[in-house]
Amino acid sequence: MKRTHFRNKILPYLLIAPQLAITIVFFLWPAGEAVLQSFQQEDAFGLKTSWVGLANYSDLFSDPVYIQSLEVTVVFTIAVTAAALIVALLLALAVDRAVKSGPAYTTLLVWPYAVAPAVVGVLWWFLFNPTIGILPYLLSLVGYHWNHALNGTDAMILVVIASAWPQVSYNFLFFVAGLQSIPASMREAAAIDGAGPVKRFFTITLPLLSPTTFFLTVVNFVYAMFATFPVIHATTKGGPAGSTDILVFKVYNDGFIGLNLGSSAAQSVVLLVIVIALTVIQFRFVERRVQY
């Protein structure tokens, strides 16, 4: 809050108008439409719409395909988050230890963040290509026959690796920042108290990093659930047999390919609720951002 303000009457509205206009036209209107449509159904020819109450929702939650998609999303989200967090933390700890060469390593580790998820998907799709990919070849040497086009588990592993890969860079930066904000005196005090490196990590570093970790967990959840659409779309397209069909992909598929408006709208609303929940959690935590 500023203690004094300009007294102009019209100017503030002019300043805020562009953002409000875009927000209303491209955010609120579509979101409102999604909510409305989620209570409606179109007939087979798309000529008539009728109100159906919660039918779309009850259909959704009794549809085994949707339930599968929910399960896939949970597994996928947790796997991506865990993989991206753990690898990033390891790298951050190593950079924190390699004091002098740290910045050089950092430069070499952060750039995957800039690679578009769709491109990342194509890259890993190439590496894992069952006929010419290098990784299936290496796996075949140890007797495993990789085929993400047929095997659901292989497909899931592919999309998890491809999705986690750029996110590692992101998490890494935040962990490095978090580690640097832990005063050296604290670790020195623990060392004087006789705690070795491993013990120090679990009793000092990890607890002090927990705000960063919590924040990153939420951000990674949001990333895995919503921003990985291009990865799925560029690689498995939700298959085989729906084994990588996460919720965002399904909304798109049902809406644009299947043209089932009512169901797609209901799915949008479910996703909205999930985003809102995650946002609320995040803001509870990072409270100063909501202060107003």
Partner: peptide, 14 residues
């Protein structure tokens, strides 16, 4: 709270 992926279809219509 409204990432584009979530409101994709209605935004497209608009």
């Amino acid at each position: 709270m409204l990432p584009v992926e979530v409101r994709i279809l209605p935004t497209y219509h608009v």
